[in-house]
Design a protein around this nucleic acid. Structure first.
Lengths: 202, 202
DNA sequence: GCAGACTATATAACTTATGATATAGTATTC
DNA sequence: GAATACTATATCATAAGTTATATAGTCTGC
């Protein structure tokens, strides 16, 4: 489970479960997310393991807050996670499975449409990341040289996203190019009829 | 759940659960995997939904095989999955969370070592994909132009992996370069002592 | 005063996935 | 003939994650 060490990471500053949800959505949403229904029980677990402690505080804006803080044992646990090296996350890409099985259809139009949708999504996300980068460049003079250690590391994660999304868009374009070439080679521009479309082989 | 349509995809050819596990490991392991303990119950579910049928067959190499085949309803279900467009898979990258929290450590050596390990892993996987590509190029004259539709789509998924891994390696290199620049700027080449290393801020 | 938005915690039901273990037939090697 | 490896199916316990729902306090606008 990576959620525990991630919560420990955020609990450098004391926060409630509700706070943590917002922090997730504001900072690491591009590579990690969690629902409140997962955060609350996990905080209870961390507390029972002595990695965090909590205090009940009155809130001016709503019901009482249960505010969690990392204990020294929690900091050690986080440290162990970081020192153990990159987590081997077997990434799953359902869209590649879909593309793979589109090979069973006779209709290359399905593949083209699929790749175009994929490209649009990657391009959208790329634009979001770029606008974040642009905004930070504007606000911080000397960005990224003058960043704090925390912001520098956050910047590296942003760079990773930019990099991968650019590669993904380029791959879509390359795939669409190969598709076009293939259609010319195999069909000489022949148009498919309605009957030929969307049929998988049995 | 993407496993059901993926199994349906493979069941273009009748296979047992055991076969399917091997097919996963041989074809889509780079973007999807499944354990036998997940495959067997899922096949039972698909059968109860009428999307596959099964027959018991005697095996020469071991116990009886339960061989599953896709029904027309199963083919339709697969078709729906493919026609619905790319599955929105919120990808999670634990290694980016780790990098993010390495910002809490004073020690940039930890970050360097982390990025170096990451680079090595990406480079290893890239080499595996490249050797697969090279092998197919050797075996198939006119590759990739002369591929069947299935192999062409498989080739696109391979290209995606090559593309993303190349981008990942490049990102690691870029990050290591920025790290070095940062160390020179902030510390003027100052060496950290043992006491300063690996300590997170509380 | 009440509707709607936001703050705040919590749990139940369900889905998805992994790891461990049990069972048992076949084939190969020592 | 015993050990090992491979073929083959199955179940259990557990973990990880999502969706829906319940409860309740505060604040703003109408």
């Amino acid at each position: 489970m990576s959620l525990k060490p991630i919560l420990l990471g955020f609990l450098e500053n004391p926060s409630s479960g509700y706070d943590l949800k917002k922090i997730f959505d504001e900072t690491v949403r591009f590579f990690w997310s969690a629902e409140l229904s997962q955060i609350y029980p996990t905080l209870h677990q961390l507390r029972s393991e002595g990695l965090v402690v909590s205090t009940r505080e009155r809130s001016e804006k709503g019901p009482d807050r249960e505010v969690y803080s990392r204990t020294p044992a929690g900091t050690e646990e986080l440290q162990r996670w970081l020192a153990a090296g990159p987590v081997n996350h077997t990434e799953r890409f359902a869209f590649l499975a879909q593309l793979f099985f589109l090979g069973q259809a006779e209709d290359l139009d399905l593949t083209r449409s699929f790749l175009q949708q994929l490209r649009a999504r990657f391009a959208d996300r790329l634009q979001v990341l770029r606008s974040i980068d642009d905004k930070e460049r504007e606000e911080q003079p000397g960005y990224p040289e003058s960043l704090t250690s925390r912001d520098f590391h956050a910047y590296l994660t942003l760079l990773c996203g930019l990099n991968r999304l650019e590669a993904s868009v380029a791959w879509c374009d390359e795939s669409l190019r190969l598709l076009e070439k293939r259609e010319l080679l195999h069909h000489g521009g022949k148009k498919t009829t309605r009957d030929e479309r969307g049929v998988l082989n049995d």
